[in-house]
Amino acid sequence: MKPDQSRLEIGMLLYPGLTLLDLIGPQTVFSWFANIHLVWKTTDLIASDTGIGIGPTATFETCPRDLDILFVPGGFGQQAIMNDREVLDFLADRAARAKYVPSVCSGSLLLSAAGLLKGYKATSHWAARDGLTAFGAEPIDARVVVDRNRITGGGVTAGIDFGLVVLAKLRGDDAAKLTQLAMEYDPEPPFNAGNPKDAGPAIVDQAMKFMAAEMERLAG
């Protein structure tokens, strides 16, 4: 970071049942350059969808009003707050002034529910992407989609990709490159099964059944 550049102010929404990597991927990308506010209704410990606890550092009332980035993660718990007026009002308020309003995975559905993706191109987890049409967004099959100041990432691991895209816009390509190098983000997955086309119908069917069962478990 250049000496004359102030730290970014970033608000990252928390909620029960969020996917931890949705949050931690971009949080790690931004951490050297930002004051990061992990935001929820209270500061009580929140359990992610794998059971790991996360401590909010700010509430909807104490989160800075003017943010460089307002970020929303996805997760199985997202369905439970799709109609939560307190959450949606918070997102709409901070987004009105934020420089960038990004999401990863099904977090784009929460942005949509808050009225923030109507008329925008956007992406999401492959299993949730088509749901964007119900909110007036245009679903795009891509790892990262940039439409004006809305930047959406695909499922889970795409949070690292979109984080680097946003960081480059706010602090330059070199900042993003050094962060990528420091994280040794140079993926070589052991299997070619990271998207439905490559995974094949049988694995896709198993994945859909698994995700449906997890969502039911967390809801119950």
Score class of each variant (00 low, 15 high):
M1G: 13
M1F: 03
M1P: 13
Q5I: 03
Q5C: 06
E9F: 00
M12I: 12
Y15F: 15
G17D: 11
T19L: 07
L21Y: 12
G25W: 02
P26L: 05
W32T: 11
V39Y: 07
T42C: 08
T42S: 15
T43G: 14
D44E: 15
I46W: 02
I46Y: 00
I54V: 14
I54G: 00
I54K: 01
C63H: 04
D68Q: 06
G75H: 04
F76N: 13
Q78Y: 00
A80N: 11
M82F: 06
N83V: 05
N83T: 12
V87R: 01
L88C: 04
L88H: 03
D89S: 14
D93Y: 09
R94M: 04
A95C: 03
A98R: 07
Y100F: 07
Y100I: 00
V104F: 02
C105M: 03
L109T: 00
L111A: 03
L116Q: 10
L117S: 10
L117V: 14
G119D: 08
Y120Q: 07
H125R: 05
W126H: 10
L132C: 05
T133I: 08
G136R: 08
A137N: 02
E138K: 13
E138L: 10
D141S: 12
A142V: 04
V145I: 02
V146W: 06
I151A: 04
T152Y: 09
T152I: 05
G154A: 15
T157G: 06
T157A: 14
I160V: 14
D161T: 09
V166E: 10
L170H: 04
R171N: 09
R171G: 01
A175L: 06
A175T: 05
K177C: 07
T179F: 00
Q180L: 06
P187E: 10
N195S: 11
P196V: 07
A199K: 01
A202C: 05
D205P: 04
A212R: 14
A212K: 14
E216H: 12
G220A: 12
